[in-house]
Design a binder for these strands. Structure first.
Lengths: 128, 128
DNA sequence: AAGTATATACGAAAGTCTTCGTAAATGCAA
DNA sequence: TTGCATTTACGAAGACTTTCGTATATACTT
């Protein structure tokens, strides 16, 4: 029985990104990755990861001295959940408004645009 | 001199949505709109709006007994800021990943898809 | 004028998140 | 073995958010 859909905070998401991108990792490794981007204390990261384990966002192997943490929620599924919520609160549920702003704002490469066009084509085809 | 880009919380965003959609409004009106969607106390909304005025997210006309509040940050600009942050934390900055998930997930109407296709076309044209 | 309804003001409680200091345990090196 | 480095454990402070009870002010109604 899965409880409510988990709502990782920004800090937790920061850690999850490292775990998703690199697989199971030690606290030190995660700490080093995050340190590249901003100042943070080692024990701060440790504490966050411990809490994430308590919450069920992460699991850990404690069989050795250096514990190894792994993400316990899937990347895409989590993104879906967060995206849905974000779309609701910020764009009143309008996917197209969100997409238009996302595309209009960031520089998107031609390849990415093609990818998106292909998806739209597929969606339109399905609708018949 | 604008300070840092404002970061409205979910509750504040909920209120801003009402103000953006309906223009300057009384606390009671905002309270009634939000009440349609979830349970909330009148004084809770009042307090939030007072805090928003302190923070500069909202302005208010206190010339009459019933104060009238208005949004003091623009809708699109705020969406842009929040979107950028969200894209970074949740999608590691990848606009296309976000867009693909947004389209793949929600039901988007043919009209909206056309709109998006048109935008992509425009962007590709500009790139030559 | 008295009483009722509505509005704002104030403050505080409860919950969460982030941060980190300090202590204790564990492994390594000389 | 002794000492040093690394790791986890614990706890607590500080900031922020959300919530609402209570008090006070203002207007309306009869």
């Amino acid at each position: 029985m899965p409880g409510k859909t988990p709502r990782p905070t920004d800090s937790e998401l920061e850690i999850l990104q490292v775990l998703w991108a690199n697989g199971p990792s030690s606290v030190r490794f995660v700490y080093e990755q995050i340190s590249k981007q901003r100042d943070v204390g080692y024990t701060t990261v440790l504490k966050l990861m411990q809490i994430m384990a308590e919450k069920g966002l992460a699991g850990r192997d404690t069989s050795r001295r250096t514990h190894i943490y792994r993400a316990r929620i899937a990347e895409e599924e989590t993104q879906q959940n967060l995206l849905r919520r974000f779309m609701d609160t910020t764009f009143r549920g309008s996917a197209s408004k969100l997409v238009l702003q996302a595309l209009g704002n960031a520089k998107t490469s031609p390849e990415e645009l093609d990818e998106i066009k292909a998806l739209i084509q597929r969606m339109e085809d399905e609708q018949e």
